[in-house]
Nucleic acid binder design. Structure first.
Length: 385
RNA sequence: GCAGGGAUUCCCGAGUGGCCAAAGGGGGCGGGCUGUAAACCCGCUGGCUCAGCCUUCGGAGGUUCGAAUCCUCCUCCCUGCACCA
């Protein structure tokens, strides 16, 4: 089962495959390889960028190998002791479990459930005593750990780094020991951690894993796609939103997105059509054909033609007459009334397509009408009966 | 331990007694334009019963007619020095 074409499929889009020739060696073992991917459960949603390593896992699975998803429950539970790091908030066990489950539901869109093993790292990390931890820490040196780009930058920026944070790469590396990983996947930002896994495995007398990294998907703002920044396309988000967000990417990014997300070359022809096709692909993968068609219809109707969507939620008018529109907008769209007032002042609010200029309107004049805030938010007003 | 520097609105960052709901940038939102939710241009961006009022500048007190700005204590962060069996 190890041929050159296998390797090129398995390592498609890969930035690093280390060591040189290591993957071929592993394939020659002639048994299903254990392909590890660590999961950060601090934020449960997977976006299409985080799905890229999962796509590699799927490729390995399709070739007969086993995917091992590691849920970093223990790592997360310990958190950052100062409790202040926004990157590593301490979560309670219930939330970790919930996040892990949410994560897995989404991951199954990409990976093969029959060939996936899910492990919680608390399983082995919780059992280590202090001597075990010291043994682990002896496998590396402070300067090696501080070499990591992330740490270097934070030191340069005068930001705090707690000692426990230095141990994260080691904990992650120990996961590889525990599951006897043959291959570990990750984004290029994980290169250091993945290589640390090799060092530690060797120190524990295991054959070190092969490291395979994939590029980080840049979003429409040319920054790394990230849920906390909000420039992400969630793997299970609403179809219409997935479609619209995909349409936001600049034309120059089409090539990278097609290669990484769809794993195909950009279709020839108009960039607009290539972008639409990419949006269809993304929605179809998550929600199926039907949803992809509906999402496109919605996009055409609302964004390209500036019309109202097909289905508009109803919103009950508050009591009283006349009705205070900022209050209605606040209730319908989750704005503050101050925001709503500004929106009206800027001509961003429409009733049945006509720009609203007054703050109050009669009950009768509002019932049954279509209220629009900006270009994409709509609500059908109904009188409470 | 000693000495210095710092904590400002969603983020970064100016502001050192009244002209401060607080410069500037980012982000977000709205409008215009457009093949696109891109790019570009313009505007807005604490809350409210909105020509007025209320709350905000790490926390708690205090000085003052008046405090983001001054004082005291506290919490946290950074840097240097000292310490380092």
């Amino acid at each position: 089962m190890s041929t050159v074409s296998d390797v090129s499929t398995l390592a498609r889009n890969a930035v690093h495959v280390l060591p040189e020739g290591g993957l071929v060696q592993k394939l020659k073992l002639g048994r299903p390889l254990r392909v590890k991917l660590g999961i950060d459960v601090t934020s449960p949603d997977i976006h299409i960028g985080r799905a890229i390593p999962l796509q590699r896992m799927r490729a390995f699975q399709d070739a007969g190998h086993v995917g091992v998803l590691i849920i970093g429950d223990y790592t997360t539970r310990i958190g950052d002791p100062s409790g202040r790091s926004s990157e590593r908030p301490i979560l309670d066990p219930a939330e970790i479990d919930r996040n892990a489950r949410t994560y897995l539901d989404q991951a199954l869109i990409i990976v093969d459930p029959d060939r996936t093993e899910v492990r919680y790292n608390g399983e082995w990390l919780a059992g280590l005593d202090f001597a075990d931890v010291l043994r682990l820490t002896r496998t590396t040196t402070v300067s090696q750990i501080l070499e990591r780009d992330d740490f270097e930058k934070r030191i340069a920026a005068g930001e705090p780094i707690s000692v426990s944070e230095l141990l994260y790469p080691l904990m992650q590396a120990y996961d590889s020991v525990a599951v006897e990983a043959d291959v570990e996947l990750g984004g290029t930002d994980q290169l250091y951690n993945l290589l640390a896994g090799r060092t530690v495995m060797e120190a524990y007398g295991l054959e070190p894993q092969v490291v395979l990294t994939t590029p980080l998907l840049l979003s429409w703002d040319r920054a790394k796609m990230s849920s906390s920044v909000g420039n992400n396309i969630p793997l299970t988000g609403p179809a219409e939103e997935q479609f619209g967000r995909t349409m936001r990417i600049p034309d120059e990014m089409l090539e990278q997105w097609w290669a990484l997300v769809a794993e195909r070359p950009v279709p020839r022809g108009e960039p607009m059509e290539a972008k639409l096709e990419l949006a269809r692909f993304i929605v179809r993968r998550s929600h199926g054909d039907e949803s992809a068609r509906a999402a496109e219809a919605h996009f055409t109707r609302v964004v390209r033609e500036g019309g109202a969507p097909e289905d508009v939620a109803e919103h009950r008018l508050p009591d009283g007459d006349p009705v205070h529109l900022p209050a209605v907008l606040a209730g319908a769209f989750g704005l503050s009334t101050s925001e709503a007032r500004r929106l009206i002042a800027q001509g961003g609010v429409k009733l049945d397509g006509a720009t609203v200029t007054e703050l109050d309107a009669s009950r009768e004049g509002l019932a049954g009408r279509l209220l629009q805030a900006g270009k994409r938010r709509f609500v059908r007003l109904v009188a409470s009966s």
